[in-house]
């Protein structure tokens, strides 16, 4: 099991709208949210948290471009330099016939590359165990978590009263 070495104070909400409202409230009060956990992708959460747009698609484009160049370049090299053979009277460099494989390799590289990147940057993978705060977060609870590792009692009390005041059904803390 991986560990973040953090002490986390968190509140569990029953409804995503209540949670979204609480996040906006926290932003207004300049409370620093460590993370938010949900059972499904909540619409509008990125904006409420102020998350910047994911750059995963840029990596996808780069991987795809590598696949396309590699595929087309390799076929060109094989048929014009390494072992030129005439097939069906076509020229050695029969570019239109290279398109289907070039396309397939573009898609293959982009998909595999993006999926590997996704799991790597999220710190996930086969058999990886990331600590979780509550088992019900993947069921029907929405969780706002604050990092309270180096905070005073006073600050923790403030966060605690914020959580229960903004509609959290349960408030708890955990070392993860």
């Amino acid at each position: 099991m991986k560990t973040y070495n953090k002490e986390v104070l968190y509140g569990l909400y029953e409804d995503e709208q209540v949670m979204l409202k609480a996040i906006r409230e926290a932003k207004a009060q300049h409370l620093e949210i460590w993370d938010v956990f949900c059972p499904f992708p909540v619409h509008g959460l990125d904006n409420a948290l102020g998350l910047s747009e994911s750059r995963l698609h840029i990596s996808g484009f780069v991987y795809g471009a590598i696949g396309a160049l590699l595929g087309f370049g390799f076929m060109t090299w094989v048929f014009t330099r390494d072992w030129p053979i005439i097939f069906g009277g076509k020229p050695y460099f029969s570019a239109p016939a290279f398109i289907p494989i070039t396309f397939e390799l573009t898609v293959l590289f982009a998909s595999v590359g993006m999926v590997v990147t996704f799991y790597t940057i999220c710190g996930m993978g086969p058999g990886v165990l990331n600590p979780t705060l509550d088992d019900r977060i993947t069921d029907d609870k929405f969780c706002i978590a604050f990092d309270t590792t180096n905070t005073t009692e006073e600050e923790q009390d403030k966060l605690r009263s914020f959580l229960s005041g903004s509609g959290a059904a349960e408030v708890d803390s955990k070392n993860i």
């Binding site: 993370d35 938010v36 998350l51 799991y119 710190g123 996930m124 990886v128």
Partner: peptide, 14 residues
């Protein structure tokens, strides 16, 4: 795979 349901992970997942 160690899924936690973090907001950033959901964003990337989508």
């Amino acid at each position: 795979f160690g899924w936690t349901g973090s907001a950033k992970h959901w964003q990337r997942w989508e």
